[in-house]
Computed example of a mutant assay.
Amino acid sequence: MEAIIVYTTFPNWESAREVTQKLLEKKLIVCANLREHEAMYWWQGEIKVDNEVGAIYKTEVSKWKELRETLKELHPYEIPMIARIDMDKLNREYSEWMARVLFG
């Protein structure tokens, strides 16, 4: 199993939970970690400061393209950041659990 983490952010808890629930139902991810944080960024020529909910999704590399496309479709942001982070090492037990959830 080649595990990856996918990171994105949402404008609020409602959208983060709604999208995450759909990804879990489609078995595109095995779990998610959601955390609120302050975000500072450029938007339309101005520096903005907002609260966002960051989502860390754990999945397998073969799910990447479908997960990315599904996130693009469901995401409330006009230009969402969807980043894939390849995991170099992962404990065997967790990797086996991921395989059972995603492919079992």
Rank of each mutant, 00 (worst) to 15 (best):
N51E: 13
V61N: 03
Q44I: 02
M87L: 12
W13I: 09
H37C: 11
E93W: 08
I82H: 06
W42C: 06
W13F: 05
M1F: 04
M40I: 15
A99W: 07
Y41P: 10
D86Y: 02
T59H: 05
N91D: 10
D88F: 04
K89M: 03
V49K: 15
Q21T: 13
K58Q: 10
A16F: 03
W64I: 00
E96H: 12
F10E: 01
K22I: 11
E46W: 01
Y94C: 04
I79P: 06
P76Q: 06
A83Q: 13
R100F: 09
K63W: 00
Y41D: 10
L28G: 05
E14C: 08
M81G: 14
L23P: 02
L24T: 04
V30I: 09
G54L: 15
P80Y: 02
R100L: 13
K27P: 04
I79F: 12
F103G: 07
R84L: 07
K22G: 01
S62E: 09
A32Q: 02
K22R: 13
T8H: 01
I79G: 04
Q44H: 14
E46V: 12
M98P: 07
K63M: 10
P80L: 03
E18Q: 13
M87H: 00
K27I: 03
A39Q: 04
H75W: 07
W64N: 00
G54N: 06
I79D: 07
K48M: 13
P80A: 07
I56K: 10
R92Q: 12
R100N: 14
E69Y: 06
K27G: 03
K22V: 11
I82L: 12
D50I: 07
K63I: 01
G104N: 11
A99K: 12
E78T: 12
K72S: 09
E14Q: 14
L23T: 02
E73G: 11
A83G: 06
L28T: 05
M1Y: 06
R17M: 12
Q44P: 01
I79W: 08
A99T: 09
K72M: 12
E93Y: 07
F103T: 09
I5M: 14
K27A: 05
T70Y: 02
V101Q: 10
V101A: 07
A99P: 01
N12V: 00
K63D: 01
S15K: 11
R35Q: 14
S15C: 07
A3V: 09
N91C: 04
L67M: 08
E60I: 05
E38W: 02
T20N: 08
E96W: 05
A16C: 08
E96K: 14
K48V: 12
E46T: 14
E46M: 14
V6H: 01
L90A: 12
E66G: 01
A32P: 05
F10P: 09
F10D: 05
I5Y: 12
E18T: 13
L23Q: 01
Y77C: 08
E93F: 07
L90S: 10
L102S: 04
V61Y: 00
S15P: 06
Y57R: 05
V53M: 03
M81A: 15
K48F: 09
E73D: 14
